[in-house]
Amino acid sequence: MPRTQNEDPDRNLYRRGETWWCRYVLGGAEQRVSLRTSDVKAARRARDRLLKDAATHRDGRGPAPVRTWEDAVEGYLAVQETLVRSNTLAAKTARRYETSLVQISEALEGTPLGDITTATVLDFVMARREDECASSTIHNDLTAWSRVLGYAVANNWIDVNPVRSFERKIFIGRDADMLDPPEDAAVQTLIEEVATWSTDMADLVRWLRETGMRLGEALAIDRQDIHPDKRHATLRRGVKRNAHGLKTRTIDLGRAADMLDRLPGKGRLFANLSADSAVVSTRYGQWCRQRQGREDREAYAEGRPPVQLARYRLHDQRHAFAIASLIDDPTCIYRLMEQLGHSSVKTTEIYTRFLRGEGAQRRYGRDRTRFGSLPPAVIISPPTG
């Protein structure tokens, strides 16, 4: 709502504690409405919407309908279907957004769009942190959230997208800032415990630790991807596109090559597991929670404090492989970059920073008798004569 140069920008506003309220007259009665924000700029925008609706009501046209989070999600998903059909948006990316929107909708059920502020976003982020979600997962959630609110802005349902102005670097950071890779003894214990539930999942955990592959890459790898020497593999499916658009790379299998004899001779190596990484991650997470639940019940029955069991993500095996490789050969960083599929060595350097910082403080353990790392470079001697 436009205002004159000398008009008070905080007219009709007042505070109760940290929360801004709006006071105005409608139908001869004073209205006092909580704006549900401590941010003065957000309060001014909410105030302007209230006054605009009040003016519309006085003109006899009735207030504008209140749009909720569900309205925006429904409208956005219809647009997203069109984007997928036109190949503007990858189907896999669309599914990831839908997964995030399920989580967000649980927190925003029935919420008017005008009530969503950066404070709302911060509450969601903190809750996801308490659930031990990875930074990358939270970033994905906020990207999906921002797309929905962007749809609402385009339809003039709200004036601004608070997710876009949220300080992600401050409140979320990167997974690299929170590295907590399991040491070799912990990985061995994890594999043994997982094997009591699923030998296929236990093999997957060992494969991830021995190769540093991403979960999606491991679930998609096929026997045809293995080279005749049975020491290397070319990854073609489930591979993350890098900055140069490359979608394939050749990796060294290391000690994972010793597992090939007990894995399928045709088709996917992990055919008994879903090819969808989200499904596998969810099943693994359920097992972790059930394992802790059993410990809690046993502790209660025995009258003792429960042991908080280490809960490592499947992706943490990739970090453990990288850390072990740099411990075994500090000069391997460029080969490690290629093995992991990083588009820049700066990404790989997060592991060297970990070893100089947190890893050095806790004297990160390495047991070469349990697991391998990136094999040494093969030096080809020039022909003689």
Rank of each mutant, 00 (worst) to 15 (best):
P2T: 14
T4V: 10
N6F: 15
D10W: 06
R16M: 07
L26M: 11
L26H: 12
Q31R: 14
R32T: 10
S34R: 02
S34V: 02
S38I: 11
K41C: 14
A42V: 12
A42P: 05
A43M: 11
A43H: 05
R45F: 09
A46K: 08
K52S: 15
R58I: 15
R67N: 01
T68A: 04
D71Y: 03
Y76F: 09
Q80I: 03
N87S: 11
T88D: 14
E98F: 03
T118S: 11
A119E: 15
T120C: 11
V121D: 00
F124K: 08
R129F: 04
R129N: 06
A134F: 05
T137G: 08
I138Q: 01
N140G: 04
Y151I: 11
A154Y: 01
A154H: 03
N155V: 06
V160N: 12
V163G: 00
R164H: 05
I170C: 13
A176E: 01
M178S: 13
E183Q: 11
A185M: 10
T196S: 07
T199H: 11
L219R: 09
L219M: 08
R223S: 04
R223E: 02
K240C: 09
R241D: 13
N242E: 00
L246H: 13
T248K: 09
D252N: 02
G254I: 01
D258W: 01
R289S: 11
G293Y: 05
A310W: 11
L314W: 03
H315I: 00
D316A: 09
A322V: 00
L326F: 02
L326K: 06
D328A: 15
C332S: 13
I333H: 13
R335D: 15
Q339V: 12
Q339W: 06
Q339P: 02
L340K: 07
K346P: 02
Y351E: 04
F354A: 04
T369P: 12
G372W: 15
A377G: 11
I379E: 01
S381I: 02
T384H: 08
